[in-house]
Design a binder for these strands. Structure first.
Length: 967
DNA sequence: TAGAAAACGTA
DNA sequence: GTACGTTTTCTAG
């Protein structure tokens, strides 16, 4: 910012209310979403950005920001609790617009600024001061008299609705005093809308007159005795302090800490396609056309963004309570609808004998027609394996209405042993023909497909041999349940059916058997299969009706639509790609590990004095503590000797050789059995690659989990273990690129708990653990003792995990009371952390759940338990969940955006793996540099445009031939 | 033979 | 101290 620059500061919150009342109500055509204020806002913003020079302001902005009120309570409430206390809650149809307006701001690529504990006015005041100090000029877009105190030679105000410029002269004209006296004037006159008391009997006119005579407020109050009018004199004397209090309330804080420096408000040129997508989502056609014309973009070729008014957006910062409809009658409100639908489903018993078996094309066609007619269809595939990459399709079931479902057998086989082949059972539609018929339905944009765990069916049917079907659009009952009830219930279909419909579906075991007598689904008799499979589709449809209604009633649409549903195809493609694993490397490692383990094993027998099963903790415990009588033995909760690594380390530290050997042996045998021996078995015979499976709904926090095999726990900490990573390789001509977030959870903590020192440290890019140690122990960062830093690091991690003195003591190998002292010291240095932890616990106790920054909920109902252990555990989990979960949300967003960004940049990188804070890509060698740049950018900006963290995200990325070197 | 317990790999 | 999944051993049935 320099001389000649011009900063526009839009008072966003004030504008919202003004536009709402001043403009005719407007709703989005397709669904009645109220957008009157949003529309006015967008038009205003566009006009300012395009034509400011042609208005009475007469200049073009070089810097620009929209400022919002963050919360209803600010420092003013601390000095005067009644401040703004007489404000009504915003009207029902305005509330959803607050969040959309923030989104709009970002769609315009304009910084969207707000700060906890401060009003928009204070932030505006502070930016204005900074801009002027830097030599620039400022225009405040507002007509609020509270801001007029800021006007001077370099700062003016502008009222867009009246196209009126307000400078010093206009203030004098209106109030009789110049802007420099506005504070005193307001302190005397008070303000009923903000509940500023002022002095009774004195309004703006009298105040101006008095200020004219006495100069300023303080002088006036001191010389109040000179005033002739009795009542006025008495009031000024009696209410002098009230006037002074009012002055503190109306005086804007020009020293608000600014998270975004003024230089960063430099105006970018509008990103036409991004803005057009947003405006199309709102169905603001006129403005869309204007923007398209101006930016020379082809509006028709741009897809509308999804803009909904619920989820985290609806619980935006402008109000405290979630959107909860009061009325429940007649299903006309979201929660009323839930009750109505639930009742309807309960009233309709499940009859598994009523399902149809579809045996010819004509019958199939009529079901497809019925699905088109209904516009929704629940789909479930039956196969012979849980691995969607390997499974053979056996049949498909459809449900078009509750109770109206069918099963289409396609691959049922006759014959018991299946070794020699009983062939296909008669009267089944040809598999490929059926897929050919189903494909248009499953890809039809006008028919919503519903599945329980869509990822499985999507991946299965997307395989080329299954027709390469890309199911869309779809809903997933498992993900719906996950968004609504994470931490509260399981999300498997049987559990959902029990809990929500009160119906126990036929269990898989009943049709396919269990254990040794289990058969593949292909062997199941078709009648039995029909009852089982069609019931699954039927139940899925019924669950969907209820869960989908709840989604809206509970304001969770956005979490589902942004963080869950769009991730399904992304993860499917990642799973389908798999990663190349070098069999030779693993088998060589297996051999080495076997040798080393065997050598250690014989030493162990030597030391123990006899042979035993080294892998048996029970036998080991007996050897160590019963036979060798080593000291310090502890018992596990089942009364066995505890022989965990920590125990053994302790014994080793006392000079015993056997425990050390056991630890070494265990490490080797773990690596061998879990990794080098097991991984080759996961190499898919067709693709020659390893395809993990990600569970999207298995954690309480929003993280993914990986299994079959778990590729999220491939060793990295030890030299020996890292060798396993060298077996994960890129194809010839390609590199593996690993990009990981640096300290994402601590950054999230700094943001959500709003800790100035942490935020500063991250902004400055300094070593966060060293900074913590420096703050706590008063030592300089330079030349710090690594042990001190290590302790601070343990505490930082402890905080994320909901610290306890017990846990920290364990981790650092220090006493409980010493650990307690550390924690105390930490809280003294970072009181905001304690506040955050306390308020999180309180919130969780009150609501039974906590939330991430993107509105994902994690339920902890047992936090109210009377059992102190259970309660404490839930408290720690509740403290951890918003941090871990917000980080999980962030990387989910990055993943959702990634493929599109790569495609747009014409890059051929493929995303293969996710390990919580890391993404692994396979990249053509020639594109490595460009890909790293793009991937880093997408990940670092993953919260945008919905949210700007108050801390930068940092991503480190590198490329190599294998995962070990890339990491 | 299914499931719990103990151990240990990751973020 | 948080969140997971896999392996092996061991036990209950």
């Amino acid at each position: 910012m320099k001389k000649g620059d011009h900063l526009f500061l839009v008072d966003g919150s004030a504008y919202i209310f003004r536009a709402y009342h001043a403009l005719p109500p407007l709703t989005r055509k397709s669904d009645g979403l109220p957008i009157g204020a949003v529309s006015g806002f967008c038009n205003m913003l566009w006009k300012l950005l395009q034509e400011a020079r042609d208005t009475s302001v007469g200049v073009t902005p070089t810097h620009f920001a929209v400022i919002f009120d963050h919360s209803s309570t600010t420092f003013r409430n601390e000095i005067y609790p009644e401040y703004k206390a007489n404000r009504d809650a915003p009207p029902e149809d305005l509330r959803p617009q607050f969040a959309i307006i923030r989104e709009a701001t970002r769609a315009f690529d304009v910084p969207c600024i707000e700060k906890e504990g401060y009003e928009a006015d204070d932030i505006i005041a502070s930016y204005a001061r900074e801009a002027v100090a830097a030599g620039g000029d400022v225009t405040i877009i507002s007509s609020d008299k509270d801001l007029m105190q800021l006007i001077n030679d370099n700062v003016i105000m502008y009222d867009t609705m009246k196209d009126k410029r307000v400078a010093s002269a206009e203030v004098i004209e209106k109030f009789g005093v110049g802007p420099e006296k506005m504070i005193d004037l307001q302190s005397l006159a008070g303000d009923s809308t903000d509940n500023i008391p002022g002095v009774p009997g004195i309004g703006p006119k009298t105040a101006a007159q008095l200020l004219e005579e006495f100069g300023d407020l303080e002088t006036l109050l001191e010389r109040a005795g000179e005033i002739k009018q009795n009542k006025r004199r008495e009031n000024l004397i009696e209410f002098a302090d009230q006037a002074r209090l009012s002055k503190r309330l109306v005086t804007l804080d020009v020293n608000t800490p600014l998270d975004v420096p003024v230089e960063d408000l430099a105006l970018n040129s509008v990103d036409g396609p991004k803005l057009i997508a947003f405006l199309k989502g709102l169905e603001l056609n006129t403005l869309t056309r204007r923007v398209a014309a101006e930016t020379e973009a082809d509006a028709a070729a741009i897809d509308a963004s999804e803009i909904s008014a619920d989820g985290y957006e609806q619980r935006g910062p402008d109000f405290d309570a979630p959107a909860e409809s009061a009325s429940t009658e007649g299903g006309s409100t979201p929660s009323g609808l839930v009750e109505k639908v639930t009742a309807a489903m309960a009233a309709m018993p499940v009859d598994t004998s009523a399902y149809e078996t579809v045996r010819d094309e004509a019958a199939l066609q009529s079901w497809i027609d019925a699905a088109h007619e209904a516009g929704v269809v629940a789909v479930d595939t039956e196969t012979d394996s849980l691995d969607a990459m390997q499974a053979q399709l056996v049949g498909v079931s459809l449900a078009v209405a509750p109770g109206k479902a069918c099963y289409i057998p396609l691959g049922h086989m006759s014959g018991e042993g299946d070794m020699f082949g009983g062939g296909l059972v008669a009267d089944q539609i040809d598999r490929n023909r059926a897929l050919e018929m189903l494909k248009p339905l499953l890809e039809d944009a006008s028919v919503l497909k519903i599945a329980q765990n869509m990822k499985y069916d999507w991946l299965l049917l997307s395989r080329p041999e299954n027709g390469g079907i890309h199911i869309a659009p779809f809903d997933d009952t498992m993900l719906l349940s996950y968004v609504l009830d994470a931490g509260r219930t399981k999300h498997g279909m049987d559990a959902l059916s029990e809990a929500i419909l009160g119906h126990t579906p036929i269990s898989y075991k009943d049709v396919a058997g269990t254990g040794k007598s289990a058969v593949s689904f292909a062997q199941v008799e078709i009648d039995k299969a029909t009852a089982y499979a069609a019931e699954d589709a039927d139940i899925t449809l019924r669950l969907w009706k209820i869960l989908k209604a709840r989604l809206t009633a509970e304001g969770m649409n956005t979490v589902y639509e942004r963080l869950e549903r769009p991730l399904v195809p992304v993860i499917c493609r990642m799973e389908a790609r798999g990663i190349s694993v070098d069999r030779q490397i693993l088998s060589r490692l297996s051999g080495e590990l076997a040798q080393k383990a065997a050598a250690i094993e014989s030493e162990i027998y030597e030391l123990a004095g006899r042979k035993f099963n080294v892998g048996s903790p029970k036998q080991l415990g007996e050897i160590l503590f019963d036979e060798m009588n080593l000291p310090g033995g502890k018992k596990t909760k089942t009364g066995q000797w505890a022989t965990g690594a920590q125990q053994l380390e302790d014994l080793a530290a006392e000079g015993h050789d056997l425990p050390r050997k056991i630890v070494d042996w265990r490490q080797l045998s773990k690596l061998k059995s879990t990794y080098t021996d097991a991984l080759p078995g996961f190499i898919n015979p067709q693709t020659k690659r390893v395809h993990t499976s990600y569970a999207m709904a298995s954690t309480s926090t929003g993280r993914l989990s990986s299994s079959d095999p778990n590729l999220q726990n491939i060793p990295v900490r030890t030299e020996e273990g890292r060798k396993i990573r060298t077996a994960f390789v890129a194809e010839p001509g390609f590199k593996l690129v690993s990009a990981d977030y640096s300290q994402i959870e601590l950054r999230v903590l700094a943001h959500v708990a709003d800790i100035p020192q942490l935020k500063q440290a991250f902004a400055d890019g300094i070593d966060i653990h060293a900074m913590t140690a420096s703050e706590m122990f008063n030592v300089p960062v330079e030349g710090m003792d690594p042990m001190i830093r290590r302790q601070a690091k343990a505490i930082n991690f402890g905080i994320i995990y909901g610290i306890s003195a017990f846990g920290l003591a364990n981790n650092l190998g220090i006493g409980r009371s010493e650990a307690g002292d550390y924690i105390k010291m930490y809280f003294e240095r970072f009181p905001g952390i304690r506040d955050y932890m306390d308020s999180t616990k309180k919130f969780a106790k009150e609501h039974g759940f906590v939330e991430t920054i993107f509105g994902r909920k994690a339920h902890y109902e047992e936090i109210r338990s009377s059992n102190p252990q259970v309660r404490a555990f839930n408290e720690r989990a509740a403290i951890n969940a918003p941090i871990q979960g917000s980080a999980a949300d962030i990387i989910r967003r990055a993943m959702v955006q990634m493929e599109g960004a790569l495609g747009e940049a014409k890059l051929n990188a493929e995303m293969l793996l996710q390990v919580h804070d890391e993404l692994i890509f396979e990249v053509p060698e020639a594109e490595v540099d460009e890909t790293i740049t793009l991937v880093t950018k997408i990940m670092e900006n993953a919260t945008m445009p919905v949210m700007q963290l108050s801390v930068p995200l940092q991503v480190d990325a590198r490329a190599a031939d294998n995962w070990d070197e890339a990491h």
